[in-house]
Write a protein that binds this DNA or RNA. Structure first.
Lengths: 206, 206
DNA sequence: CTGTGTGAAGGCTTTCACAGCC
DNA sequence: GGCTGTGAAAGCCTTCACACAG
């Protein structure tokens, strides 16, 4: 598998290109140049072309890329990445918000279950996703072979919940809690810290 | 101002260190080594030390860093970055969730107002933040000198709303919408795309 | 002897420059 | 002429190795 030689940042951008190609397809656009596609993705054209060469050649010189062909190539590269069942742990403010957020389902991710210390307290009226007590989490992960978890518990609980998830066999965590998780290196963690994103932006304000 | 010579990634990590130092301070820990602090931040000790040298020397050799002293130095570096008033545009699912999310306020950011095409439809029962119709947005930004906006509108509306924000004088945007915004280069944009984060994680699952 | 500070080396990404094809 | 593909160069960031201070 050539999977491992694609740089992390490139993989991230491939997801971007993929989504742009979907929109182009919906608009019945058949061909796109690296210039146009790169601009839509907010990168330089050379970067886009370099990104694509990691797994082949798809363009026609003098013309550009066939939207559908490139789209299906990217589907192929990212295929394992889509339609993964996901669990969410921590149905507080942010967690229950994400349960109601339809952006995941739209893009092929299904949150199959949520867990919380107080499942009955979850503000979950508008969602069909079941919220279970957290002591059922490990069992659920094991029985259903869940590999992906979204972590939205308070900072104080995050590490111990993460330990439990790892123990149960989780391979990747999308971490919204305000601490950096210590996990074995085979477990992948992406951190999203909204306060830091704002602080970072503010730093660059004049 | 030495501000501009600090690399973007370093600024981001400074926010991390800052939060860890706050926790250490709360726990009455007075001194911390670069090893311990780096581990908590998920980086290598040398990286932490290098990050700090961008704006001075704060450690005591053989001992480590004084928690409070380093904390106040970071406050100084990040000071403009905190306590900025923020507006939120797009009070749909994700937007109204963020209005209820207390993580921003806890970290010094106040969302002073929200805007939506259908303000009355905003699921805003539990929040005290006012939701105004979107045609009041520009005026509000101008009158209050708002520099920071959180954008949670649907992809189809995002670019035109962003244009309006830029026109009104916004300097930085935290963009949750699924497209990459085209903005003048003096405007800073940080993108958060939750579906791509999940897809990216999934890619690295075996 | 412990742990910071830092020039130099190394590694990873991005960008350039241009060859090659339509 | 227009646009892709790509080796080489540049740039940026991280890591190393070790000098130096307490």
């Amino acid at each position: 598998m050539t999977k491992l030689v694609i740089p992390r940042k490139t993989v991230y951008r491939l997801s971007l290109y993929f989504r742009i190609l979907e929109r182009l397809h919906q608009n019945r656009i058949e061909t796109v140049s690296s210039d146009a596609l790169a601009k839509a993705a907010g990168v330089k054209p050379t970067q886009l072309r370099k990104d694509l060469t990691y797994f082949g050649q798809f363009g026609t010189r003098g013309l550009g890329y066939n939207v559908d062909a490139l789209h299906s190539q990217l589907t192929n590269v990212l295929r394992t990445a889509r339609f993964q069942p996901v669990i969410l742990v921590g149905a507080g403010n942010l967690g229950s918000a994400l349960l109601r957020y339809d952006g995941f389902a739209k893009e092929g991710f299904e949150i199959v279950a949520a867990f919380d210390v107080h499942p009955e307290g979850a503000k979950n009226a508008h969602s069909k996703i079941p919220v279970y007590p957290i002591d059922r989490m490990s069992g659920f992960v094991r029985e259903n072979g869940i590999k992906l978890a979204i972590l939205t518990v308070p900072a104080a609980a995050a590490q111990s919940v993460a330990n439990e998830l790892v123990e149960a066999g989780i391979q990747a965590i999308l971490n919204f809690s305000a601490i950096i998780l210590q996990v074995p290196e085979q477990v992948v963690v992406n951190n999203v810290n909204l306060a830091i994103e704002l602080e970072n932006l503010s730093y660059f304000i004049t």
